[in-house]
Amino acid sequence: MEAGKVINLVQEPEVFYRIQNKYDRIISVLGGSTQVSQVVNSDIDLIKITRKGLPTSVVSTLSKVLGISMEKMSNLLHISHRTIQRKGSNDLLNVYSTEQILEIADVISRGIEVLGTLDNFTAWLHSEVRALNYAKPLDFLDTSFGTKLVKDILGRIEHGVYS
């Protein structure tokens, strides 16, 4: 991997598992550094990206990573599917959608770290979880409180607490 270039999880999943930097993993989930068009080394950089907006094309990338339809993805972002379709792939999303996408990417990164592979994580994400009253973690990714709850459960799993 070239210095300063972050790979794309969808295209090179085996390389993703060797990435140690939290920010590089998040950018990889979103389609790599060319997709995000900014180097990310800190939470300050994530805030800058949030304020600027991510390109609409990351919505499609994220739906593929999660194994969900674009309709479901648009529901997680509280944007109509038609609105996403109307936008060009380089059009920027608003602050709220960008922030939700970054939070979801962080959950995916954390989930892969805890559960070992993207396949294990997505299987868990689509399963009914006791700690969520037998609801699917995927259904909680539409709010910041929900993403925090899912990350908390992943932390409990990592520490061997039955969840």
Rank of each mutant, 00 (worst) to 15 (best):
K136V: 04
V39G: 07
W124G: 03
Q100Y: 00
G67L: 04
S74M: 06
G111P: 03
A123H: 14
G88M: 13
V40S: 02
N120Y: 12
E113W: 05
L118S: 12
L115K: 09
T56Y: 08
D119A: 13
N94T: 02
G67I: 05
D106L: 08
V95E: 15
E103P: 04
K48G: 01
R86L: 14
Q100A: 04
S74G: 07
D91Y: 07
S33H: 02
G53P: 07
N94A: 03
M73R: 03
V107H: 06
A105Q: 02
K48E: 14
A135T: 11
K64P: 00
V65T: 06
R86P: 01
S60M: 07
E103H: 14
K52T: 13
R110C: 14
L102W: 05
Q85F: 09
V95K: 15
N133V: 07
F121M: 07
L76N: 03
L76H: 07
S42G: 04
Q38P: 04
L102I: 10
H126C: 03
K48T: 13
Q85Y: 13
T56R: 15
S127H: 10
L125A: 05
K136E: 11
S97F: 00
M70Y: 08
S89A: 11
N120D: 15
A123R: 14
I101S: 01
G111T: 09
A131I: 05
M73Q: 06
T117A: 03
H78K: 13
A105F: 03
K87F: 11
W124P: 04
T34N: 09
G53E: 05
P55L: 11
S60A: 09
S80Y: 04
L62I: 02
V65G: 01
L54R: 08
N133Q: 13
S37L: 09
M70K: 14
K52D: 10
N133P: 01
T56H: 10
K48R: 15
D106I: 00
H81C: 10
L125T: 11
G116W: 12
R51D: 15
K64N: 04
S109E: 12
G111W: 05
Q38G: 10
Q35M: 12
I101T: 00
S69G: 05
W124Q: 06
L76G: 04
L77F: 01
S63N: 04
G88K: 15
D106V: 01
H126N: 14
S74C: 05
E128D: 12
L102R: 04
L54S: 05
S97P: 02
G88Y: 12
V107S: 06
A105M: 02
V59C: 04
K87D: 13
I108N: 00
V107E: 09
S57D: 13
L102H: 00
I79F: 12
S33C: 00
S69H: 01
S57T: 14
E113T: 07
M73W: 01
I68C: 06
S109W: 07
K136T: 06
V107G: 06
L132A: 09
T50W: 06
N133F: 11
D91C: 03
I84L: 15
H78C: 01
R130M: 07
V40Y: 02
L93M: 10
D119I: 14
R110Y: 14
E103M: 12
K87R: 15
I104K: 05
I44G: 07
T98W: 10
W124R: 05
S109V: 08
I49G: 02
A105V: 02
D45P: 06
T117D: 01
A135C: 06
P55A: 12
N94R: 08
T56W: 04
